[in-house]
């Protein structure tokens, strides 16, 4: 079963994402911000990396973009989807080197999200 690490600073949205993804059959881990994402991945066993990252672009402490930049620098090549409030929030030029697999805007189109996840976690 594919594992997805979801990061968002809103607990409600985390609950929503967890519920929808679990309903679709994924194993879901959650993080409240980018800092938590990087800490967990650094501390955790490298062999137990999630199959997909679903990161909110704007979060306090550390944004999803900054977390992803750190992870890429550390050699983590897990596919990542970025969720932002609207397309202005993420400058596509600033993330070209981060190998982002897709961008989603809020409110999240779950049909699109689940399609993307299915495609990215297909083994």
């Amino acid at each position: 079963m594919a594992r997805v690490l979801v990061a968002d600073d809103s607990e409600t949205i985390l609950l929503l994402l967890r519920t929808r993804l679990e309903l679709a059959g994924y194993e879901v881990e959650t993080a409240a911000d980018g800092q938590e994402v990087t800490e967990r991945l650094y501390k955790g066993d490298r062999d137990r990396l999630p199959d997909l990252l679903l990161l909110d672009a704007m979060m306090p402490r550390k944004s999803g973009i900054d977390a992803l930049r750190e992870l890429r620098a550390a050699g983590v090549d897990t596919p990542a989807l970025i969720v932002s409030a609207h397309q202005d929030a993420t400058d596509a030029n600033a993330t070209t080197d981060l190998e982002v697999s897709g961008y989603l805007t809020k409110p999240i189109d779950f049909d699109r999200l689940l399609d993307s996840i299915a495609e990215l976690t297909r083994t």
Binding site: S10, T12, I13, L16, A85, H86, P107
Partner: peptide, 12 residues
């Protein structure tokens, strides 16, 4: 921007 998060929850 700020309205989108709660709206995401309601719709979701």
């Amino acid at each position: 921007h700020e309205l989108r998060s709660p709206l995401t929850s309601v719709q979701g």
